[in-house]
Computed example of a mutant assay.
Amino acid sequence: MNILHALRPPDLFTILNISLGFAAILLIHESQSQDAIKLAVLLIIIAAVADGLDGFVARRTGSGPLGANLDSLADLISFGAAPAFLVVGAFSPPMHIWPAAIIFLICGALRLARFNISGKSDQLFEGLPIPAAGMALSVSVLLGKPSLTFPLMLFLALLMISTLPYPKIRDMRILLILGLLVIAAAWAAFLQSNILYAAIILGALVIAYLLSPVVISRLQKGR
């Protein structure tokens, strides 16, 4: 198979996802300054946007033979390895804390492997999607509190391999609102240097999604 001939339009967004995630790793490897950390978080968030776009385009143009596997590999880099490396680079923990980052990465890989072999639902994910986990972990770094970030890393790892139902967000109106909020957070962090405000906006979005299984459970019981 000619790899280049097998590529489809959605795969280009997946390649962008991979590039942004690895760029975040390289950035943190080069510098652990506050500006580098903020930029790395932004790169991971943009990678999540690219991940959403590849799915959006695939549903309209069709996916190629590389699509699903390439997407999982990209997600493992951008939302598994990059956030874990960001945490270790930002806080420089002692070596006995490193297993928390390794567990996060392993659970992300297990989550993706299960997704690839299980039946797909049009409405729900089984377990927390790794892009949501990666963004949640990355945003927590902006608060500068390792005592919060490291327990959160393990909690997110458990949510990824859980069987809790998480909704698939495909409504363009909701996606537009989320996009505007992310832009507002980026504006606060980079143009106004207000990291706390950016973290609050992004954190509120993340918490709302993390709690969504509770809402789904309530709705199902109400039927």
Rank of each mutant, 00 (worst) to 15 (best):
L112V: 08
L112H: 13
A109P: 13
L105T: 13
P94W: 02
F104G: 06
K120E: 02
C107L: 09
C107D: 09
M95I: 15
R111L: 07
M95L: 15
H96A: 12
P99W: 04
C107N: 12
R114M: 02
N116D: 01
H96L: 11
D122Y: 00
L110Y: 11
A113N: 08
P99R: 05
Q123H: 07
W98L: 05
P94C: 01
L105H: 14
H96N: 15
I97K: 13
L124G: 04
I117F: 07
R114L: 00
I103V: 14
P94L: 05
L112C: 11
A100Q: 11
G119P: 11
W98G: 07
I102H: 13
E126A: 13
Q123K: 08
E126F: 11
I97L: 13
I117R: 15
C107Y: 11
W98F: 07
I102D: 09
N116R: 02
M95P: 14
N116S: 01
L105A: 07
F125Y: 07
Q123D: 03
S118I: 06
M95E: 15
S118T: 06
S118V: 06
Q123G: 01
H96T: 15
Q123V: 08
G108V: 01
I117G: 11
L124M: 00
G119M: 13
S118N: 15
W98C: 03
R111F: 05
L105K: 12
D122T: 04
I117S: 14
I102P: 12
W98A: 03
P94E: 01
R111W: 08
D122C: 09
I103K: 08
P94Y: 03
R114Y: 00
F104S: 02
P93L: 09
F125V: 04
I106C: 09
H96C: 08
R114C: 00
S118W: 02
S118C: 08
R114Q: 00
L112A: 00
N116W: 00
Q123A: 04
I103F: 14
A100V: 13
S118Y: 06
F115I: 13
